[in-house]
Design a protein around this nucleic acid. Structure first.
Lengths: 132, 132
DNA sequence: ATTGACCCTAACATTGATGTCAAGGTTTAT
DNA sequence: ATAAACCTTGACATCAATGTTAGGGTCAAT
């Protein structure tokens, strides 16, 4: 199949498919006219890439184990675990930071309401307010 | 004071101070030789900017209420609340997304250990392991 | 033979705060 | 007078995946 069809079947833009190829995540044969020609398997491969990208991994990280996970069960690819652990640590850090900021914001918002009693009710859904 | 001193006193790089000025967050007088000349108050202003940046707000958002909060208590600046609410909503979304990814990662890591019993103990702190 | 729907490569744009470098002027101390 | 330590503006680089555009080839149907 050509790139347009692969794009439609996976929901990944043509631009991104070419990028994945450039990053070494997928390969393609070429037709006589220079068009890329993909196996049926490419659909699954691209969906796999999509999955790992949604997990927040970079194309570089994915390229480190993609070859293995396409052939084996993920659990049997030793390259996967360290990447997962690293990502998990990053995410925990980010959640911590966001949680701290969130608490700070909430506290400040709370304080604004304390100092502005007239704001109290405006918080509620406007739809429910007859006088608005 | 000149920009180098302001930088030292606030811990904000000279580059960033110029950027803040370009974004309209601070102003400076000029000496005869063209050097920027700051009030003592600038130290507090820059620290205020730093604080809001650490809260995750953009310079554009900060510029929307900085003028007010420098003169009044934050709670009395009506421009602040909507920005805080927007930021809070964004943060909640981010935390949700990260939490979902985290659960996914943890599940997959867990599964890898299930499938690789020999990895079990390597999880612990290497320092504590006599045989390592 | 022309139109429309494909495909190709290459390159620039996006986002936002900051780093860094270039090329040059000023000041201060020696 | 010279070196060191300041200051100036302007511009390019960063990060990463993706969008977009330009300029051009291919193919199918009319």
């Amino acid at each position: 199949m050509k790139i347009g069809e692969l794009s439609k079947r996976t929901g990944v833009s043509v631009r991104s498919l070419r990028y994945y190829e450039q990053q070494g995540l997928i390969t393609s044969a070429r037709l006589d006219n220079g068009y890329r020609d993909y196996h049926n398997l490419a659909v699954e491969q691209v969906n796999t890439i999509k999955f790992y990208l949604e997990l927040g991994l970079s194309t570089e990280q994915i390229s480190g184990f993609l070859h293995c996970v396409l052939k084996n069960k993920e659990a049997f690819c030793k390259e996967v675990l360290p990447v997962y652990k690293k990502k998990l640590a990053e995410i925990n850090e980010q959640i911590q930071l966001l949680t701290r900021i969130k608490a700070n914001l909430e506290e400040r918002i709370h304080f604004i309401f304390l100092e502005n009693p007239q704001l109290e009710e405006e918080e509620n859904d406007v739809e429910k307010c007859d006088r608005c």
